[in-house]
Structure formats: C-alpha cells, structure tokens
Amino acid sequence: MKIKVLTVGKLKEDYLKKGIAEYAKRLNRFGTVEMVEVADEKTPEKASVAENQQIMAKEAERIQGKIGERDFVVVLAIEGKELASEDFAQKLEAAKNTGHGTLTFIIGGSLGLDPAIKKRANLLLSFGRLTLPHQLMRLVLVEQIYRAMMISAGSTYHK
C-alpha cells in the first residue's frame, strides 16, 4: 500500500515538518509514504474571481499530473463529508480491499481547489467547518491517517 499526501505550496515551518515526519515514519509500517508538494501560483493582492479561477486551474494541472489512474483520491474540502475516526478507517480499508494500490490525499492551496480536482475525488472529506492553515492541516491529516491505520490494525492508539 502506498500513501501519498499531495499538497499545494511549500511547507516552511520546522515544527510542522518535524511533526509530519514523525507520523510519516510511523505510517511506514503500513506501506510507503510519499509527501508531494506542487508549486502554488502567486496570487495578486486584489485578484478577480476570473484570476483566482485561472490560478486554481494551473494548480489543478500540477495536481492531476501526480494522481495515478487507479489511486483512491481523498480531497480535503470544507463541503466534504465529516467522518468519525472509525468510519474514516473503514473507508480507507475498503479502498485498500477494492484494489486501489495508492491512497492519495489532496490539500489545496490558499484559494482552495479547482472543481476538476474535487470531481476526481473518490471521497470529499471535511474535518469540520473550522478554517485551519493549510500547513497545519498537513499535520492533522497525517495524524488522522495514522489513527485510521491503527484502528484498522486493532490498536488502542485511537482511544
């Protein structure tokens, strides 16, 4: 099993890098973990709606180039489905059992994600209506993936 976390933009904060690295190391017992960053587009300060759409479309092209045809794609989106940890674990387990060799998780940039990326998703997932910085969301996501894997493995980590 391969776990890919695909994000728009570079992670700069060292403390977040360390936390993500720790969970990625823990996840290695369940398969290969790959953290992929695609470049974000510079957004003008007073960008129009059309300019924002163009920016998201360019970022979407970069993202699509990193998604495999048979990947199970989980897109983080505020309008997505909210799941309990156990339900999230069941979704990932079902994806593994139906022949998806790669679980690909996508976090967009500051403008969000182009509709084409959301359409490609097998699961639109929301961690609630709170707005979190995209960089922090990476750490939250890898911890939740780890938690889901531990639940599937029958561990008590999640309690």
Rank of each mutant, 00 (worst) to 15 (best):
F72Q: 01
E143H: 04
L103N: 02
V75A: 08
G112H: 01
N97F: 00
T98L: 03
L92A: 06
L132H: 12
I145Y: 11
L130M: 15
K96M: 11
F127W: 00
K119C: 00
K119T: 05
M137L: 14
F127S: 00
G65M: 15
T104A: 11
N97K: 14
P133D: 09
N122P: 07
L141M: 09
I106Y: 01
L123W: 14
E86Y: 10
S85R: 12
Y146K: 09
L130S: 14
F105K: 02
A60N: 15
V74C: 04
Q64W: 08
T104N: 07
G108A: 02
R62W: 10
E143A: 07
A121Y: 04
Q64K: 13
L123P: 14
G128H: 10
I67L: 10
S110L: 10
V140N: 02
R120N: 05
R70S: 14
S85Y: 08
G108N: 05
E61M: 12
E79F: 01
E79M: 01
N97Q: 14
V73W: 06
L139R: 05
S85A: 10
K96L: 14
H100C: 00
I78R: 14
G101P: 15
I67M: 10
G112K: 08
M137Q: 13
L76I: 01
I145L: 11
K119D: 05
H134T: 05
E93V: 09
L83I: 06
L76V: 03
V74P: 00
A60C: 13
I107R: 00
A84Y: 08
